[in-house]
Structures are given as C-alpha cells and as structure tokens.
Simulated assay, not measured.
Amino acid sequence: MSSQSGPEKPLTPAQTAKPYGTAAKEAAKRAPAKPTTAASLSDSPAVIAKEDPVKAIEKLETRTATVNANNIARVANSQLTTNDDKLLPLMSLKTGKPIEKFPSTSAGIAKLQLTTVDAILKALEAERSGNEEAKRERLRLHIGLTPNPA
C-alpha cells in the first residue's frame, strides 16, 4: 500500500521572508559588480538600479531608515512646550546624516539665514517656494512644530 499525502500547501509570505538587509547581499550574488564612475553617481534611481542593484537597494534602505528617524524626531519635537526646548535634529534624506546648521531650538529658526532655511528644506526634499515667512513656517511644520500663531 502506498501512502500519498495530498498536494503540498504553498508557503506563506511570513515563511519565505528574508531577514532585513539581506536583499542587498543576495542581489550582489546575482549581479556582477560594475565600477562606479563619477557620471553614474548623478544618474537617476532607475539607471542606478539597472547598473548596480546593490547600490540602489542600499540607497533605499538608507532613505527608509532616515525617514523613520525623522518621523521619530518630529513626534518628539511636537511635544516641546517652550521656544527654548532642545529640538531633535532631522537628517538629510539623500545622505542619511544630520542636517548641517539645524536649529537647536524653535527660537533658532527665526535666526537662521534664508539660505540656511532653503538648504534645510532641500535636505528634507520639501517645497522651497514662497517668501521668507512661508519658508520658515514650512520648516517649522517639517520639524514637527505647530504653526506660529497669527
């Protein structure tokens, strides 16, 4: 007598999931590494992904970690009660590093030069249009602060 077990059940996504961070390592095994040139550093994400999938995945992982860290900082900053409370600095979405010349307090936003406000908004990939007041208000919102009262 031969025993037959029924058709095998397909694995669930949880059973086939890989540990975080292994996607880049597996892509490196599948795709041969190509030399990085100065021109390829400025290419679009789609071009980078085709040329070097490992680098594209690493950039995506950096951006995701940065977005998460910035969201945590925004929540903490939203709980401040005075203009002299210390802000948690945000990080650049492109580099994943703390933004240079980030104000230490909400009172420091008014003291920033307009070029610095623009640079911070650019690092956060935020809209930079409008007058000086609109830009400072936008920065306050991106940091997690409430709008200035009228």
Rank of each mutant, 00 (worst) to 15 (best):
residue 84 D to T: 11
residue 54 V to G: 07
residue 106 S to Q: 07
residue 87 L to V: 00
residue 115 T to R: 15
residue 107 A to R: 10
residue 95 T to S: 15
residue 101 K to V: 12
residue 93 L to A: 14
residue 104 S to C: 02
residue 93 L to N: 12
residue 116 T to P: 06
residue 81 T to P: 00
residue 126 A to E: 15
residue 72 I to K: 12
residue 91 M to Q: 12
residue 116 T to A: 11
residue 62 T to P: 05
residue 47 V to N: 04
residue 84 D to R: 06
residue 110 A to T: 09
residue 140 R to I: 02
residue 58 E to Y: 03
residue 114 L to A: 13
residue 69 A to E: 07
residue 134 A to N: 13
residue 109 I to N: 02
residue 137 E to P: 11
residue 69 A to Q: 05
residue 110 A to H: 02
residue 67 V to Q: 11
residue 42 S to D: 02
residue 49 A to Q: 14
residue 108 G to A: 07
residue 87 L to N: 04
residue 62 T to N: 12
residue 51 E to K: 15
residue 137 E to T: 13
residue 128 R to D: 09
residue 83 N to Y: 12
residue 119 A to L: 07
residue 118 D to V: 07
residue 98 P to I: 15
residue 114 L to Q: 13
residue 45 P to C: 12
residue 100 E to T: 04
residue 76 A to N: 05
residue 78 S to Q: 09
residue 110 A to Y: 01
residue 57 I to A: 07
residue 49 A to Y: 07
residue 94 K to E: 15
residue 42 S to A: 14
residue 62 T to L: 09
residue 47 V to D: 10
residue 88 L to V: 11
residue 129 S to Q: 12
residue 97 K to H: 10
residue 73 A to D: 10
residue 106 S to R: 04
residue 73 A to M: 05
residue 72 I to Q: 09
residue 52 D to G: 05
residue 133 E to T: 14
residue 74 R to T: 03
residue 63 R to D: 05
residue 51 E to V: 08
residue 60 L to Q: 07
residue 109 I to P: 03
residue 128 R to F: 00
residue 86 K to M: 10
residue 129 S to T: 14
residue 70 N to F: 02
residue 46 A to F: 04
residue 105 T to C: 08
residue 120 I to H: 04
residue 112 L to Q: 08
residue 68 N to Q: 14
residue 52 D to H: 09
residue 68 N to I: 12
residue 78 S to T: 01
residue 49 A to G: 11
residue 102 F to H: 05
residue 99 I to P: 04
residue 81 T to K: 15
residue 106 S to E: 06
residue 103 P to E: 05
residue 65 A to V: 04
residue 107 A to M: 08
residue 45 P to L: 11
residue 135 K to Q: 11
residue 133 E to C: 02
residue 51 E to P: 00
residue 64 T to D: 13
residue 57 I to F: 05
residue 105 T to N: 10
residue 97 K to Q: 15
residue 77 N to I: 00
residue 111 K to G: 01
residue 44 S to V: 05
residue 124 L to A: 02
residue 89 P to D: 14
residue 47 V to E: 08
residue 137 E to M: 10
residue 93 L to W: 13
residue 124 L to C: 03
residue 135 K to I: 01
residue 50 K to I: 04
residue 93 L to G: 09
residue 96 G to I: 04
residue 75 V to L: 15
residue 86 K to E: 14
residue 95 T to M: 14
residue 50 K to V: 11
residue 59 K to P: 02
residue 53 P to W: 08
residue 42 S to F: 12
residue 77 N to H: 05
residue 127 E to R: 09
residue 89 P to L: 04
residue 122 K to T: 14
residue 83 N to D: 15
residue 117 V to M: 11
residue 88 L to F: 07
residue 134 A to R: 15
residue 129 S to P: 00
residue 115 T to S: 15
residue 101 K to H: 07
residue 65 A to N: 12
residue 140 R to T: 00
residue 73 A to E: 08
residue 117 V to S: 08
residue 100 E to C: 00
residue 100 E to F: 02
residue 134 A to D: 13
residue 47 V to S: 12
